[in-house]
Nucleic acid binder design. Sequence first.
DNA 1: GGTCGTTATATTTGTCCGGATATAACCCTG
DNA 2: CAGGGTTATATCCGGACAAATATAACGACC
Lengths: 119, 119
Amino acid sequence: MKELLLADVPFRFDGRLWLEGPTDRFMGVGRLQLLEHIAVLGSISQAAKAMQMSYKRAWDLVASMNAQVRTPLVQTQTGGKRGGGASLTPAGQQVVAEFQALQARFQAFLAAETARLNG
Amino acid sequence: MKELLLADVPFRFDGRLWLEGPTDRFMGVGRLQLLEHIAVLGSISQAAKAMQMSYKRAWDLVASMNAQVRTPLVQTQTGGKRGGGASLTPAGQQVVAEFQALQARFQAFLAAETARLNG
DNA sequence: GGTCGTTATATTTGTCCGGATATAACCCTG
DNA sequence: CAGGGTTATATCCGGACAAATATAACGACC
């Protein structure tokens, strides 16, 4: 590509990758961030607020993920201390760790391609 | 990941990558396919029909791509033989070739990650 | 037992993108 | 000079998806 074809302003590669289940999506960047926030904040509603995401959407995503695995990624508690809460199960923590690593490898791929583009 | 966490049905990786310009997207899989169809069929409307894409959308995409480069990727002719037509410029052919190669490398990356997932 | 913040869920509202539609301009061909 | 198929462009309309809203249930804690 390069100078001949494109404008002076640099073009940037970008991309997304995700894990697709049999029915709907299982894991992606948005879902990953949601899990990370839940792990830190201990609540679906707090996580949603921190991401300026509607609670409904956040809850739907959690339900979707939990429905696709044997052991849920997020366990919830209604009522009780502080009114309730949510936290990651060991399975959830493992999924987060693995997908974070995958994202890192993908970023490296993207960086390599960007270098090839500009080189 | 693997057997412990996920259902029996295999999950599969999927992803997209694209080239982002300063204002809007410059190149992606959809735009690539559109260019390929234009190259073969010699017409924007024919290409759109072959992809079951509305002519409006196809034309918008072509205009977007042409607006972001010095020399257009697609040259068009209104009126004339067969009422007009469209074809790829050398610049357009080069972009198609390069992005096809990129897509191939990306598919390889995806395959490697899928192997790691199932391995 | 009242309070509180959360999960859980349904329903309504709103917004945005794409498709459909319409029409003009173009120019080779017969 | 009329016809035909395409590019070029504006406008209207609907459906999908997200957000907002509403409400019930829950259970520890004071």
